[in-house]
Design a protein around this nucleic acid. Structure first.
Lengths: 167, 167
DNA sequence: GAAAGTTATGTTATAAAGTAACAATTCTTT
DNA sequence: AAAGAATTGTTACTTTATAACATAACTTTC
């Protein structure tokens, strides 16, 4: 397993989150930007969630935790920062956010999103990257950003054909 | 050029739209579903637009044309139908809709979206499809749908570095 | 061809997602 | 301590999308 992983597998969730937060702190410090308590809190909530989380879900969680009203800009600013720093990715198809798997290097990321349990698995496949680069070049298109989201059934949910959400 | 193309290149726009509408009508009839005047109108507006169109833009256009109030569900229902029938694709990153290039076959589609002129070019690259299938399979994931959106600069906007929107 | 069923559309209201603008605060630097 | 910059708080609003129910239009079937 990647030592700086920011996302969860069904093992030691708490440990992973902590490791990821430490990595995030280190990266921000190296980059001369600030992972303020508020930003770190949002990141923690995203990391602790098994599924991608929506901005308004995060708002509700923050309100629970702080016992005061949180307005949308508070969350969106934190998210903007985290996405900017590649600590979090946005899944456009479902308007939700997930922790980045390997935030250390600036990389292209792709997602497998399970339609059944909503788990999003990040992956970064070289041949896929090459295919994209090649496709773009063949069309004289200069590619900058990408959003690659694949829906289907994760390994667990293929066998568990039942109604459980795996949540 | 593909005989059943539903999208535009900077040539005979009107002709392309008409051809695409005929194809759409044929397909719907073959499939036993109805391309009602309202649905066809929405499709026409999408086809006639050079850029991807938002739902509320379509609403405004419909109001202009019909001179009466159009409510969101009217547009969204038509869009749902058109997307369902693969006559239109939704670009999730920008919440906008584009006509499908080759609606005849159920295919995977990918998009190059120009950050400068907002033009969305649909393409369907075999090696990219294979890379995706391979990536998914390697992770024991059963892929069903996909949303592949690549942002960057289209050929025109690389040379035209200026402020014009190419619209 | 009228009654029943189905599909499509109209209408009202509201939910969900995201941002603009400005005020207050805190953190930094001098 | 004062000035400047970054962050957070607050209010209001925009944009995107859907739920729920009423009405109208097609389509069988008898």
């Amino acid at each position: 397993m990647h030592p700086t992983s920011l996302t969860s597998q069904p093992h030691n969730q708490q440990h992973c989150t902590n490791t990821a937060l430490m990595t995030a702190n280190r990266l921000c410090s190296e980059r001369g930007v600030k992972l303020t308590p508020q930003r770190e809190q949002v990141l923690r909530l995203i990391l602790q969630s098994r599924q991608p989380v929506g901005a308004y879900q995060l708002m509700a969680m923050l309100e629970e935790l702080s016992d005061k009203t949180i307005a949308p800009p508070t969350v969106y600013r934190a998210l903007d920062f985290l996405v900017e720093q590649d600590l979090v990715h946005k899944l456009h198809s479902i308007n939700a956010f997930v922790g980045c798997n390997h935030p250390s290097c600036h990389h292209q990321s792709h997602f497998l999103i399970c339609s059944h349990c909503q788990t999003a698995t990040e992956f970064d496949d070289d041949s896929l990257n090459q295919a994209i680069t090649h496709s773009a070049q063949a069309r004289h298109f200069v590619a900058k950003e990408q959003s690659i989201e694949i829906f289907g059934l994760c390994p667990d949910c293929q066998t568990n054909t039942s109604h459980q959400t795996n949540a």
